[in-house]
């Protein structure tokens, strides 16, 4: 437990992301080239370095790698250029789009969605994981909950509960068999998004109640976008659209902001 509590969850995230990337390339034949990997990681590191220098801030290597891998796992393009742009946009948004001294958007979410809106050269492929990998993701995601504590993961947990309920409710209303919502939930991209993007404590409300409300709102908007506007990858858009509301939650529910350097497990479990 003492080892676990000392482990930075971003290391854990990086391990899971790297495993997924390798699995994706070798087994699932993702169209990712080594040039793209180099371009994305290189651009992200350079952008981070540049802004840290300009703003005289310490360089955060781990978060930058997390962002790079999120971009590589969720976004595809034929050429490396647009993926690099997505990574650069994501990192730049951390420094440039700030409210109340905090960055507004999850960097990879921002980079991915803006790239999707800007060009048809990129695409997110929610079906690419198939339905074989979701159990691994569920276990890996639950591992993260164990690591950082359920309080930190409240946005993820409430999002998943709300999204699941909405899908089953919809199936019940339509008279569809349960296999349909089950199939919709066994989606690698959805779990990757929930556990490794929506879980970002820096861009979700600080207060536990705020996190729950935020997670539920993202689920509601995602379902609306997915089934009314027929938008693929709706959850990515939903998170981006609602991220600016986080500062309202934080003003309303006063709570100390999350810091990576502080203990990340539940205080009572820290030795």
């Amino acid at each position: 437990m003492s080892y676990l509590s000392r482990l930075d969850p971003r290391h854990y995230q990086l391990t899971v992301q790297t495993t997924l990337l390798l699995w994706g390339i070798w087994v699932l034949e993702f169209p990712i080239t080594w040039q793209q990997i180099l371009a994305v990681i290189g651009t992200a590191l350079l952008t981070q370095r540049l802004f840290c220098y300009l703003f005289k801030l310490p360089n955060l290597l781990l978060s930058t790698l997390n962002t790079s891998l999120s971009v590589l796992l969720l976004l595809h393009a034929q050429a490396a250029l647009w993926l690099a742009v997505a990574a650069a946009l994501g990192i730049a948004s951390k420094f440039l789009l700030r409210l109340d001294g905090k960055h507004v958007f999850n960097p990879s979410n921002f980079g991915i969605v803006i790239a999707l809106l800007l060009t048809s050269e990129v695409w997110a492929a929610p079906g690419q994981w198939g339905h074989g990998l979701w159990l691994f993701l569920l276990i890996a995601g639950s591992g993260l909950v164990g690591l950082v504590g359920w309080r930190t993961m409240l946005a993820t947990v409430s999002f998943l509960l709300a999204y699941t309920s909405l899908l089953f409710l919809k199936a019940w209303w339509l008279g569809d068999p349960w296999t349909i919502p089950q199939h919709q939930l066994q989606n690698g991209s959805l779990l990757l998004f929930s556990f490794f993007m929506l879980s970002d404590p820096k861009t979700t409300p600080a207060h536990p109640l705020g996190r729950v409300l935020f997670g539920v709102s993202v689920a509601l908007l995602a379902v609306w976008l997915q089934f009314r506007l027929f938008l693929p990858n709706a959850f990515l858009y939903a998170l981006l659209a609602l991220s600016p509301s986080v500062f309202l939650f934080n003003r309303w529910l006063n709570y100390p902001a999350f810091e990576w350097s502080k203990p990340i497990t539940k205080p009572e479990e820290t030795p």
Binding site: H76, W123, P177, Q182
Partner: peptide, 18 residues
């Protein structure tokens, strides 16, 4: 069949021209 394909097929056009 119903077991392996419970849902209708949803598509997207990608930027993949390979």
């Amino acid at each position: 069949d119903r077991e392996t394909f419970p849902e209708d097929l949803m598509f997207q056009t990608t930027g993949n021209t390979g």
